[in-house]
Design a protein around this nucleic acid. Structure first.
Length: 571
RNA sequence: GGGGGUGUAGCUCAGUGGUAGAGCAACGGCCUUUUAAGCCGUGGGUCCUGGGUUCGAGUCCCAGCACCCUCACCA
């Protein structure tokens, strides 16, 4: 991943400044409780420079800086002017951004700054800058500056804003990471995501895509006349999933509350209330393990549609993922191919064939080329963990029992054989219900093989207390899960709206589920069903995982800005 | 919780029981066309923590901590 991070623009950077509000900077002293050794000479030197700037009458933290032109806009406008190398144009502009690279050369200086749209080279010469030249020498990598100047090209042809005036907008007190490798320490990247973001362009791209994906999902549902709602995250009774909740306490009411593990039971209350198509993009909290696929808080879109069933929900999954694909991966694949090819070419030129080849393989160039070819042919192909995935609807629909037979070699109707298989797989099945054992065998044998997007439908009923039973086989529930890359992406039911069966299911203790059981009685939910809930299809899709597969991010922590971490040890 | 790996300068990383290293960054000097990257010089360390073995430990042993990967549980 480290080398991947360096695709694209060179990085550089510097952590944000903390706790320097008001006049505090005038007397800044050592900061305590810092994670790393930051009370060192790097910081001291920068504080000294900042103080020197104050002496020059400069506010080191700037202020409003109006009428800024984006770097990308400067680039686009310059493109139309056909400026020759070594020439300056008539085009003037004002830009602002963080100093990423800095090359001081006697009476001439170049900087590369970055704003939200990209990078731009600034050129300074002592004659043009006049009395601002001493100030320039007090600037460091990581500082945020503004510049006014005229657009031109250097002798080497690089687009450059030749600055006549420079404005300090924020002095940076901490040194940025190494400019070539960027910040690669995984722990530090998450703890100081702000540094990761301004250092590593690919990271910003992932989160821009995440935003675009969420927008696409929302738009898809709004287009289908869904209403977006917000339901409680603080719940007196938790439910809607098999998971352990976080507990908390409200002081005034003096009651214990749970952080929601799922919005399901509230959203279905809204079906009772007559909001017939309803969805929520909600944060859910599950007090369980952390892994590459699990963060204790994660984002789901859940939706419920009256008079529909789980087959309609399959179409909704395909619609949402298609929208999300077009909003993110489609462009991303082309960009990745270009970026990898560029880096391979550089390595071939500057290093050797072997290194270039290794890079090519490490970054799955062949898979990306295949995916791009697929897109050109009108398919929704992308790459995740080196595998080409094809999201083009319709996705394969496979019956749970058939897959169990295919991969585990056992019949869903033969608990004895299933237990035998469980023994073989070294799954502890003693004292567990048949359905639980079957599902554990399914998870062990089938799920890892579900690489391409696939709907698995008709689950054992005992593990689906909120789903309607199959009309012809009460041991089967009308439920499907969507899988991709061996990962569960979504889960859907034809919803159970019979209050008596629901109540019985809540009371049913399924052996082997441990603490993570869905059998938590919710009296008010039963009451709601007794008023009458329309038959409905319901669906939940993990947004984080969707972002993972659409951005080729191998860990869920790569798509969550601030994943949960143990607090840094005091120093 | 089990297994594997990592932890050395601000960052990225070398380091073979015997004086703690490189590149970038920083500081000083020179430099008007650089593209990660001019030249010369200088400074910079709780080698994750605590024990142990040893004449001597960054290196070997034990324990702990943090992070990553993986398995188990879950979405």
């Amino acid at each position: 991943m480290a080398s991947l991070l360096r695709i694209g623009l060179p990085g550089v950077q510097l952590p944000a400044t903390i706790g320097l509000a008001g006049a505090a900077w005038r007397v800044a002293g050592p900061r305590h409780n810092c994670i790393m050794g930051e009370d060192d000479h790097y910081r001291t030197q920068r504080i000294n420079k900042r103080n020197a700037l104050v002496e020059l009458g400069i506010d080191p933290y700037g202020g409003r800086f109006a009428d800024v032109t984006a770097a990308a806009e400067i680039r686009a406008r310059a493109e139309l002017l056909n400026i020759a190398s070594g020439e300056r144009s008539e085009l003037t502009g004002r830009v602002a951004g963080r100093i990423m690279l800095l090359r001081m050369m006697g009476k001439l200086a170049f900087m590369t700054i970055r704003d939200g749209t990209g990078i731009l080279q600034l050129g300074f010469n002592k004659a043009d800058l006049a009395d601002q030249w001493p100030m320039l020498k007090k600037l460091d990598l990581g500082d945020i500056i503004g510049a006014d100047g005229v657009v031109g090209r250097t002798k080497m042809g690089e687009l450059t804003l030749w600055a006549g005036k420079v404005t300090l907008l924020a002095k940076s007190l901490l040194p940025p990471p190494e400019k070539w490798h960027g910040l690669t320490d995984v722990d530090l990247r998450y703890r100081r995501r702000y540094v990761d973001l301004f250092t590593n362009p690919e990271v910003r791209e992932v989160f821009k895509k995440r935003s675009a994906i969420i927008q696409a999902v929302r738009q898809c549902l709004l287009d289908e006349e869904y209403t977006e709602v917000e339901t409680p995250a603080l719940q007196p009774v938790y439910g809607g999933a098999a998971a352990r909740p976080f507990t908390t306490h409200h002081n005034t009411l003096d009651i214990d509350l749970f952080l929601r593990i799922s919005p399901e039971l509230y959203l279905k209350r809204l079906l009772v209330g007559g909001i017939e198509r309803v969805f929520e993009i909600s944060r859910n909290f599950r007090n369980e393990g952390i892994s590459t696929k699990h963060n204790p808080e994660f984002t789901m879109v859940e939706l419920y549609e009256a008079y529909a069933d789980y087959e309609v929900m399959m179409e909704r999954v395909e619609q949402m993922v298609s929208g999300a694909f077009n909003a993110s991966a489609k462009q991303g694949v082309a960009e990745r191919v270009t970026a990898i090819e560029r880096e391979v070419a550089r390595l071939e030129k500057e290093k050797d064939e072997a290194e270039a080849k290794a890079y090519m393989e490490e970054n799955h160039l062949e898979a990306y080329r295949q995916a791009q070819a697929g897109i050109t042919a009108g398919r929704m192909t992308t790459v995740f963990n080196g595998e080409v995935l094809d999201f083009t609807p319709p996705w394969p629909r496979r019956k749970y029992a058939d897959l169990l037979k295919e991969y585990a070699g056992v019949s869903i109707a033969d608990p004895g054989a299933t237990r035998e298989k469980a023994r073989e797989l070294q799954i502890d099945h003693a004292g567990k219900d048949d359905a639980v054992v079957i599902n554990e065998v399914f998870e062990a044998t089938v799920e890892p093989n579900l690489i391409q997007p696939t709907f698995v439908y008709d689950y054992p009923a005992a593990i689906c207390p909120l789903a309607r039973r199959h009309p012809e086989d009460p041991s089967i529930a009308l439920r499907f899960e969507a899988f991709v890359a061996g990962m569960e992406l979504g889960n859907a039911y034809t919803e159970l709206n019979d209050p008596e069966i629901q109540e019985a299911n809540f009371r049913q203790k399924v052996a082997g589920e441990g603490d993570e059981t869905m059998a938590v009685m919710d009296e008010d939910y039963i009451t709601a069903l007794e008023y009458g809930m329309p038959p409905a299809g319901g669906l939940g899709v993990g947004i984080d995982r969707m972002v993972m597969v659409l951005t080729d991010s191998p860990s869920i922590r790569d798509v969550i800005l601030f994943p949960l971490q143990r607090p840094a040890a005091p120093t």
